[in-house]
Amino acid sequence: MTLVLAMLIDALFGEPDWAWKRLPHPAVIMGRAIGWADAKFNKGEQRILKGAAVVVILSVVVWWLGSLVPHLPFGGLIEVLLAAVLIAQKSLAQHVQAVSDGLRKSLSHGRQAVSMIVGRDTCEMDEPAISRGAIESAAENFSDGVVAPIFWFMIAGLPGLMVYKLANTADSMIGYRTDKYEEFGKFAARLDDVLNWGPARLTAIVFMIAQRRWDIWGLIRRDAPLHRSPNAGWPEAAMAVALNVALSGPRSYEGKLRDFPWVNGAGARDIGAKEVDQAVDMLWTGWLVIFAFAMLVAIAC
């Protein structure tokens, strides 16, 4: 029942800005610890070992903290609230919806909104490119920010959820193939890949169930490997096929055009705010699928 309540609180209230003006978000605390370790240890020799040690030690710490919570005064309530803030359904839907709302005002509003959720260059994006960016972010972040946290909570409770969040935060900060992080962030990147392997594929199944499209699994399996990520291709391919849109494709990073292959290349490419709205609808329908499953598990247990 803890997970059911956490999902409801997140869906209803999302990220309360008033709270984070007074208290640091748990993910922010994790990020500060990773940033401190990066500055302290990402130098000299044996950076792979140092980076691995940092992630392992921090994972042990957050697991221990998560295991303490139920034994605190009001521990049950704290556990529900912590789980709620580490699930990102409403905030994800709001950020994606902002792109659709922005596009209905102007291209510049759409570019500004999508720049909040993608890492690619946005200053010259047209409406289809903005829309693809929003839909891709919706699919990938539904897997990383909703399905995976819920999956790991079901597997290992709050400690499992917190370790997943630590690994995901570490990957987003140091898991890059750059001169600075190629070695130090390698373990974080690989751990994040391992922890997201199951949730990414489950997300594709959730989207299939949400759209009642039992016929698209073959297309998802065909196109998922086209993505440069071993996991992100699964939710992205499922979203693309379910909405009949083409995703990925060429885009620019730091002024350099990257010629990525199209995912569901036969789908519509001239897309806009309507398709972004459809992606938001699918986020909520997918959430309902997971919520129904969580309710069944709670009742059975």
Rank of each mutant, 00 (worst) to 15 (best):
S248I: 06
A273N: 04
V62Y: 04
E275P: 09
I220N: 00
K180R: 15
M1A: 08
A39F: 10
L86N: 15
N231C: 02
M125P: 03
K21W: 04
K21V: 00
M173W: 02
R120M: 01
H25L: 02
F293L: 15
G272C: 10
A148Q: 03
W64S: 14
P149R: 02
Q278D: 14
I57H: 09
A266G: 06
D171C: 03
P149A: 02
D144T: 01
R251S: 07
V245E: 07
V206I: 13
D259W: 10
F184R: 01
Y164R: 05
G31P: 04
S91A: 12
A6F: 10
V241M: 00
H95F: 02
R201M: 03
G286H: 09
G272H: 12
G31E: 06
P16E: 02
K40E: 11
G110V: 09
L283C: 07
F153T: 01
V60I: 15
E136K: 12
A242R: 12
L5K: 11
Q211M: 15
M282S: 15
G102V: 10
M1C: 12
G75N: 12
A300S: 08
H25I: 12
E254T: 03
M208G: 05
G31N: 02
T203F: 06
A148S: 07
G255H: 08
R47V: 11
I135S: 06
R222I: 00
L5S: 08
D259A: 11
Q278S: 14
H227Q: 05
G133D: 01
L58A: 05
N231W: 02
P70D: 04
A27W: 02
Y181W: 13
V96C: 10
Q89K: 13
G218M: 01
I29V: 14
F74I: 04
L92D: 06
V263P: 00
D171A: 00
K105E: 15
A224F: 02
D144G: 00
C301T: 14
R111W: 04
W18Y: 12
E79N: 11
F151A: 01
V96Q: 11
Q89R: 14
A242N: 10
A279F: 14
S100F: 10
L3H: 05
E45K: 14
S108C: 01
R258A: 09
D192A: 07
G185T: 03
K90Q: 13
G51R: 03
G265W: 13
L68N: 00
G76H: 05
L81M: 12
G267H: 05
E183C: 06
P230H: 02
A224D: 08
P70M: 09
V4M: 13
K90P: 00
A113L: 11
L5V: 01
D10L: 06
G76E: 13
A240K: 01
L243W: 12
